[in-house]
Simulated scan of single mutants.
Amino acid sequence: MHGPVVVSWLLVALAAASAGYGLSRLRGARAGRESGATEALMGIGMAGTVLRPGVVWGWLFALLALALLLAALAPGAPRAHRLHHGVGALAMAYMGLAPAGHHGTAGLPTVTGALLLYFGGYALWTGSRLLSAPGGPLAAAGAVSVSRAYRTAMGVGMFAMLLTM
Rank of each mutant, 00 (worst) to 15 (best):
V146R: 10
S145I: 06
Y150Q: 11
G107L: 04
G113N: 06
A123L: 02
F159N: 02
R79H: 12
L11R: 07
L69Y: 07
H84G: 13
A17I: 11
G155N: 00
A13D: 05
M154C: 02
T126C: 06
S8R: 15
W59H: 05
A80V: 11
G101R: 01
T105A: 15
R79E: 11
Y150A: 06
V12Y: 11
G22F: 02
R82V: 01
L117N: 07
M1P: 14
H102M: 11
I44L: 15
L41M: 10
A16S: 14
Y21H: 12
L162N: 07
V5F: 09
A13S: 09
M95A: 10
L97Y: 12
Y21E: 05
W57I: 04
G58I: 01
A15N: 05
L73T: 12
G48H: 01
V50E: 01
G136D: 02
L70E: 11
W57K: 00
G121R: 00
L11W: 09
V12E: 10
G120N: 09
F61P: 00
R27I: 15
L97E: 03
Y118M: 07
F159P: 02
A80T: 11
A77E: 11
R79T: 14
H103E: 03
A37G: 14
T105Q: 15
R148W: 06
Y118F: 15
L97I: 05
A15M: 13
A40D: 12
A77H: 10
A140Q: 06
E34N: 08
L83N: 06
G107M: 08
A40V: 13
G155L: 02
G36N: 06
G28Q: 15
M42C: 05
L70I: 07
R79S: 12
A98L: 12
H81R: 15
P134K: 02
L64F: 00
V12F: 05
A74N: 06
M161S: 01
T49Y: 14
L130V: 04
L163D: 06
R148H: 03
P109E: 07
L162V: 07
A149D: 01
S24H: 11
A16C: 10
R148K: 08
L115V: 04
W57A: 00
G32P: 04
M161K: 05
L70N: 08
S128G: 03
P137Q: 13
T112Y: 05
M158C: 13
A149F: 09
A149Y: 03
A67K: 12
M46T: 11
A72H: 13
